[in-house]
Design a protein around this nucleic acid. Structure first.
Lengths: 140, 140
DNA sequence: CTGCACCTTCCCACAATGGGAAGGTCAACA
DNA sequence: TGTTGACCTTCCCATTGTGGGAAGGTGCAG
């Protein structure tokens, strides 16, 4: 089947399918005489695997590792579990950070009257030097 | 003061200060005879404002809007509050998504025995077509 | 044969940030 | 005085995923 059909069946855009192939996440697709990529049901299954793991927030690098584990019939399930748990821990850390930020923001918003008047505790507070312990955390 | 001092006092890297200036988030800094940027206490206050709003997860675009509201003495506080609340709602949405994903992942991890054996329900499950209602949500 | 929908590759853009090269400047110290 | 090292300057490149679009080939339906 053409890349368009494969895209439709998996929810992965044609653009991304080509990109995944170009970076080596996926093996080179079979080609037909006219140069069009040709996808089998097997290929579609792999794309669905990628789609699903991406939906769960795994990075392409992690997807790649999971894919390798998936196709390696002899790997121990321990590795898979470790990957999943690392990812869960990461999500937990990010959620803790977000909770703290939301708490601050809610407090700020609560004290802002939000009307025609121009004095606004939110802005006053934002202008202060940063809170102790605030970190340069990169969200991904 | 030099950009290095300004960076140290605000926690914004010199690289980023120059970048913020280049994209127009900050006005062009004053220059000394030798071409070095020269920062006043006022400038440092603005940088601290930026730093703090960034820490709270506002995008540069949102920071830009907040900065404009901050320096416009006549703006109604309603606008600021709306921006903050939009941001809070966005964080809440993302946290809901993350919670759902974590629930799925925890269930998967729980059923994976995680030992030497190779059969692994995580991978089996990931290989299935995506769950109904799964969306292509962009995290930022 | 024409038109349209598809495919191909290639380059550009985004958000924010860091890395580093190549070169100018300044202060301190021998 | 000269050198050294810590600054500063601009400029380009990489990152992570994704989309947009150009320029050109293909295939099918009317």
């Amino acid at each position: 089947m053409n890349i368009g059909q494969a895209s439709e069946q998996t929810g992965v855009s044609a653009k991304m399918i080509r990109y995944y192939e170009s970076i080596g996440l996926l093996p080179s697709a079979a080609r037909r005489a006219n140069g069009y990529r040709d996808y089998s049901e097997q290929d579609v299954a792999v794309l669905q695997f990628v789609r699903r793991t991406r939906d769960l927030g795994f990075s392409l690098e992690e997807v790649s590792a999971l894919l390798a584990l998936w196709t390696d019939k002899k790997r121990p399930s321990r590795e898979v579990k470790r990957l999943a748990e690392t990812h869960i821990a990461d999500l937990e850390r990010r959620m803790r950070e977000m909770r703290a930020v939301m708490k601050t923001l809610r407090q700020l918003a609560q004290h802002c009257h939000g009307d025609e008047r121009s004095d606004c505790p939110i802005l006053d507070d934002l202008a202060k030097p940063r809170a102790p312990g605030a970190k340069r955390t990169r969200r991904h």
